[in-house]
């Protein structure tokens, strides 16, 4: 049983993530009164890319060549550390800081890969990505820290087990920290209002401009990793702050309930994202730090309230 659970745990993020992207794109199309691509389109895109040749810039070094594997690998590692459907699968890898910094390692190499080909867009994309991720990191750590103090552990996989279900007193700090984490999610996954994942304007891109040079398998891995990242942050958002339905044992029924409740909750996050991205405009670049400051203040208040 445990092996089976581990297999589900490890495969969940990479297998489900493209579906999530398909869901968001489909919903956005609906809001624009279009039918949009099928939910499975992201899988087709990836599969197609795996079967294409690659053209790599002659200016690029091994960093460019290896970054996709690191970016993808990092999301698989982190994906396996999450409280996806149960709080019983714990590894020492699930440490809050280990997760945050492992994800940062992926960003580090992705930003370097953006600069590596020497295209002006890649460079400015890296600069923007690092600007945002540099100032968002403090909020990322502290919003999860709120829950960590409540549950008495920084191991995110088992955090939910430490939260007593009926602890109404903690609702306010949790909601505040959740709000802060939502801003972190948007920033870290290059969504609105930080970045426009659909844009075809090379001058406004953040994440996409680092990918302009990639092709074939490496592009597939980079896009897959981005989808994984979105799912990772969504799972963190729903299962750390609202671990309703998550299994605390390894019984078949509770595991099934855990999986379905997570899917449902993540779907809600994606729906909200789709609506958000259809109804607001992207922010000006230099207004984004204000948003991150809001997240930071929310966190400080939340942690202060916990203790």
């Amino acid at each position: 049983m445990s092996y089976l659970l581990w297999i589900i745990q490890i495969m969940f993020v990479p297998l489900v993530a493209p579906l999530g992207v398909g869901l968001i794109n489909s919903l956005k199309a609906r809001i624009q009164k279009r039918r949009g691509a099928s939910l499975l389109q992201p899988y087709r895109n990836l599969w197609k890319l795996f079967y294409k040749d690659e053209v790599i810039s002659r200016d690029a070094s091994f960093i460019f060549r290896f970054a996709p594997f690191i970016a993808m690998g990092v999301t698989i590692i982190v994906g396996a550390c999450l409280p996806i459907f149960t709080s019983t699968l714990s590894t020492p890898m699930s440490d809050l800081l280990a997760v945050v910094y492992t994800l940062a390692l992926g960003t580090f190499f992705m930003a370097l890969a953006g600069m590596d080909s020497g295209s002006a867009f890649g460079g400015s994309g890296s600069s923007r990505e690092m600007t945002i991720s540099a100032i968002v990191e403090a909020s990322f750590i502290s919003s999860i820290l709120t829950v960590a103090f409540l549950s008495g552990t920084t191991n995110i996989a088992v955090m939910s087990a430490g939260l007593s279900p009926g602890s109404g007193n903690f609702l306010i700090p949790i909601v505040l920290a959740f709000a802060a984490f939502c801003i972190v999610l948007l920033a870290e996954t290059s969504r609105y209002p930080f970045d426009n994942p659909d844009t075809h304007l090379e001058l406004t891109m953040i994440h996409e401009s680092m990918l302009l040079e990639f092709s074939g398998k490496r592009l597939a891995l980079m896009e897959w990793a981005a989808a994984n990242r979105l799912l990772i942050f969504s799972i963190l958002a729903v299962n750390l702050f609202f671990p309703i339905g998550i299994a605390h044992d390894q019984a078949v029924l509770s595991v099934l309930l855990g999986i379905s409740s997570t899917l449902l909750k993540v779907a809600i996050v994606y729906i909200v994202l789709a609506v958000l991205e259809s109804t607001i405009a992207k922010y000006r670049f230099f207004r984004l730090p204000d948003l991150l400051l809001v997240a930071f203040v929310l966190n400080v208040v939340a942690i202060g309230l916990v203790l």
Binding site: I31, Q32, Y192, L201, E277, S278, A281, K282
Partner: peptide
């Protein structure tokens, strides 16, 4: 203009 500001709803409306 709306699309380039990232306002997808307006962008789709204009195209329609």
């Amino acid at each position: 203009i709306m699309l380039d500001a990232g306002f997808n709803f307006g962008g789709a409306g204009g195209a329609r």
